[in-house]
């Protein structure tokens, strides 16, 4: 009987084990930083036990008997905040579009793209409140200061969204316009803009939504609007008026979000688009 030898199985090298040292070190360092931070802020852990009771107490003060006589003034100041948000969005979007398009790869040259992107990154690092504090020395405590802070603060992120949107446009269209003899500007106008415009318009509306929320925060430093009013009522412990303000802010913000969201869906997905995935 002849022996049938099975073919030798090739030796397969086992995949290298993942190196866990770096991950473990990062975990340890993160844990140490969190513990050090907790130690230095001197948390009063005993206060945590009283927190739920305090929250219920203040909610009762605000919402048990709201002072509805303050409603007209609250609406008026909310309108100031919305105007601040709208003007800030308009200025910010215009500047972001003008600066964001040449910052896109394939549109602007490298010597222009890099400094523009650096400026956007620096602006992103500074919160709107800080910008408002800096510019109010020139423009004073007015809603225009708030609008200007929103506009400048918004450029950092909005210009980034702009160049990322332009870069996401499939290259074929721009190549075809360039092949038809289009200059750099004409290629951007006919090859990139028609495809990017709906998304950019949608992002502009989203910027307005974000500004409505941020404008309330800017009011806290005294530039007017509903945040300013909220600070006043809180300092004088008029909790029944604070309750009315919170109701107005929540309702108006949600209404603006709903209308703006519907408009954005219509722009990006078409008039007949309906929400089916619950993501919007």
């Amino acid at each position: 009987m002849s022996a049938v030898l099975a073919p030798a199985r090739p030796r397969v090298a086992a995949p290298p084990r993942p190196r866990r040292l770096a991950v473990r070190t990062a975990q340890l360092v993160t844990g140490a930083v969190v513990l050090a931070a907790l130690w230095h802020v001197h948390l009063d852990w005993t206060g945590l036990r009283e927190l739920p009771g305090d929250v219920v107490h203040y909610l009762r003060l605000m919402f048990a008997h709201p002072d509805w006589s303050k409603l007209p003034y609250a609406l008026q100041q909310t309108w100031v905040s919305v105007q601040m948000a709208w003007l800030g969005a308009l200025l910010g979007v215009v500047v972001s579009t003008v600066l964001g398009i040449p910052a896109a790869q394939g549109v602007g040259p490298l010597w222009l793209r890099l400094p523009l992107r650096a400026v956007f990154a620096v602006i992103r690092a500074v919160p709107e409140v800080i910008i408002a504090i800096v510019i109010l020395t020139v423009t004073g405590l007015t809603p225009f200061t708030g609008a200007l802070a929103l506009a400048i603060g918004g450029i950092g992120t909005h210009a980034k969204w702009t160049y990322e949107t332009i870069e996401a446009v499939p290259g074929g269209t721009a190549e075809a316009v360039r092949a038809a003899g289009g200059t750099l500007l004409e290629t951007a106008r006919w090859g990139l803009w028609p495809e990017a415009a709906p998304e950019l318009l949608s992002l502009a509306l989203y910027r307005f939504e974000l500004n409505v929320r941020t404008s309330a925060i800017l009011g806290l430093i005294g530039v007017g609007g509903v945040g300013d009013l909220l600070t006043g009522y809180t300092q004088y412990r008029q909790w029944d008026a604070v309750g009315v303000l919170i109701v107005v802010v929540v309702v108006v913000t949600m209404a603006i979000d709903a209308v703006s969201g519907a408009l954005r869906r219509r722009i990006t997905k078409g008039a007949r688009a309906r929400v089916v995935d619950g993501t919007e």
Partner: peptide, 21 residues
């Protein structure tokens, strides 16, 4: 640019049409 505008026409595999026009 002038050569492509006046003398040469291009047709690409991926068409390169602007979808919104």
């Amino acid at each position: 640019d002038a050569l492509r505008r006046d003398v040469v026409g291009f047709v690409f595999q991926s068409f390169g049409l602007v979808p919104t026009l």
